[in-house]
């Protein structure tokens, strides 16, 4: 009996790869965050749509994803069943933490989703437009306090880029880091800081309720249903997108890479994935192949430059 079972299990193990590959997705963050949410959504959709027979999610939290990234690059080299979720925050974290393992040590497959950044002020503020805010910043950078997420994160980078575009020394910005969007929001609503930066979705409710004024969004084009100019329109050449991506293990051959890329493309095209994006309010920013590679390189270079300007990377 035992042998029969074992034999059956063995046969099953051999048979599965023939039609669908199993995946293990690493979310380099604690359960519950955005990366974990992305990984678990991928798990659900890939299984439901039959893209993979069995998908497992593991969490390796720490340091903006660099702990997980390091472990992933070391442990899964050449294994085509391993995937890792990451994003723009990881680009910054690799640089600020001086992580020995970078995104060059894994095989980026595709960008999946993205968030646009928003710049807001409290409704009671006398600042009416991004122009007003920048004028203040140019007059006395220290007097403009910015509330946003962790140091070196997307929010901080947005402020740094804006300062640079406005001709203000980025090391002089008075950026006040909060541990999450919620905490930063309390400071903005309580009129404790001059302005706030976070994702558009994070502020949407408050802007609608009229307790905050949305000055600008960081996308290249205006967003549907959101009444605010882009930073670019206001005259500053800044476009920032907080994107999430999926990458595969290092050391894969072209055939393996193509198989994974095809599976991810199938995922992106599925109805289930569309529903997940709609439910979670994520924008689909799917970009794969060489176009993504080029975009990633550009993002890394730009981020490194701005972090150097802010003084977080020496």
């Amino acid at each position: 009996m035992k042998h029969a079972l074992l034999g059956a299990a063995f046969a099953a193990a051999l048979a599965i790869p023939a039609y669908a590959q199993d995946y293990t997705i690493m979310a380099p963050a604690a359960p519950g965050g955005g990366w974990d949410g992305t990984a678990r959504a991928m798990q659900d959709v890939m299984q439901a749509e039959g893209i993979a027979a069995s998908v497992e999610v593991i969490n390796v939290p720490g340091a903006g994803g660099t702990v997980g990234l390091a472990q992933f690059a070391a442990d899964s080299a050449g294994d085509p069943t391993k995937l890792i979720v990451g994003g723009y925050v990881m680009v910054g974290a690799v640089l600020t933490n001086a992580s020995p393992v970078t995104l060059k040590d894994v095989t980026p497959i595709a960008r999946l989703t993205g968030d646009t950044q928003a710049i807001v002020v409290p409704a009671t503020s006398d600042i009416q437009s991004l122009g007003d805010l920048v004028a203040k910043l140019q007059a006395d950078p220290g007097a403009v306090s910015w509330a946003g997420g962790s140091a070196g994160g997307t929010d901080h980078i947005t402020v740094g880029l804006l300062a640079k575009a406005a001709g203000v020394d980025p090391t002089k910005i008075n950026y006040v880091a909060f541990s999450g969007g919620g905490e930063a929001m309390a400071a903005i609503l309580g009129n404790q800081v001059t302005a706030g930066v976070s994702s558009v979705g994070e502020f949407a409710e408050q802007v609608k309720a009229g307790t905050m004024r949305l000055l600008a969004v960081s996308s290249a084009e205006r967003l549907d249903g959101i009444d605010a100019p882009t930073i670019k329109e206001a005259g500053f050449d800044v476009v920032v997108q907080n994107w999430r991506m999926v990458a595969a293990a290092p050391g894969l051959n072209d055939e393996q890479k193509a198989k994974i890329a095809a599976d991810i493309e199938k995922l992106n095209g599925s109805a289930g994935w569309g529903k997940v994006l709609a439910d979670k309010g994520w924008a689909n920013t799917y970009l794969a192949g060489d176009a993504f590679g080029a975009q990633l390189d550009a993002d890394i270079a730009a981020t490194e430059a701005v972090l150097r300007d802010i003084g977080l990377v020496k």
Binding site: G62, A63, S150, A177, L312
Partner: peptide
């Protein structure tokens, strides 16, 4: 761990798990 305001790593002794 990493100081939330400056991003400086404190008392981590280069152990990645201590970063957080």
């Amino acid at each position: 761990g990493i100081d939330g305001l400056s991003g400086a790593a404190r008392l981590t002794f280069d152990v990645p798990q201590l970063m957080d």
